[in-house]
Amino acid sequence: MFKKFLKDESGAQVVEYALIIAVVSIALVIALQMLGSGAPFTNFINRVGVCLNGPGPCV
């Protein structure tokens, strides 16, 4: 009975997918925090807004 339990791998795929989702979620949270809290990113968004809204220096 114990050997049968050790050989049963039916739940292994669910655990693997859960771990992958957790790692990807953590990476996304870290990336979004880094992008959202910085002057370079804010400056980039402002420049894109100026270029899209009309004539102006799009450098």
Score class of each variant (00 low, 15 high):
Val50Leu: 12
Ala39Gly: 01
Cys58Lys: 03
Ala18Met: 14
Ala27Leu: 13
Glu16Gly: 03
Lys7Glu: 15
Met34Cys: 03
Ala12Met: 15
Cys58Leu: 04
Ala18Asn: 07
Ile45Arg: 04
Cys51Lys: 02
Leu6Asn: 12
Ile30Val: 14
Thr42Gln: 10
Ala39Ile: 08
Asn46Leu: 07
Leu6Asp: 14
Phe2Val: 14
Ser10Val: 08
Tyr17Gly: 02
Asn46Gln: 08
Gln33Thr: 04
Ala18Phe: 08
Ile30Ala: 11
Ile21Phe: 10
Phe41Gly: 02
Gly54Asp: 03
Val23Asn: 05
Pro57Glu: 06
Val50Asn: 05
Ile21Gly: 01
Arg47Cys: 01
Met1Leu: 12
Val24Ala: 14
Ile26Tyr: 08
Ala22Met: 09
Lys4Arg: 14
Thr42Arg: 07
Val29Pro: 00
Gly56Ile: 01
Ile21Gln: 13
Leu28Arg: 02
Tyr17His: 11
Asp8Arg: 13
Leu19Met: 11
Ile20Gln: 08
Gly11Trp: 06
Ala27Lys: 06
Leu6Phe: 08
Ala12Arg: 15
Val59Thr: 15
Ser37His: 09
Phe5Val: 13
Pro40Gly: 04
Ser10His: 09
Leu52Trp: 04
Cys51Asp: 00
Phe41Thr: 14
Met1Ile: 04
Thr42Asn: 10
Gln13Asn: 11
Asn46Glu: 15
Ile30Asp: 03
Gln33Asn: 13
Asp8Trp: 13
Val23Phe: 10
Pro57Phe: 02
Glu16Arg: 15
Ala31Pro: 00
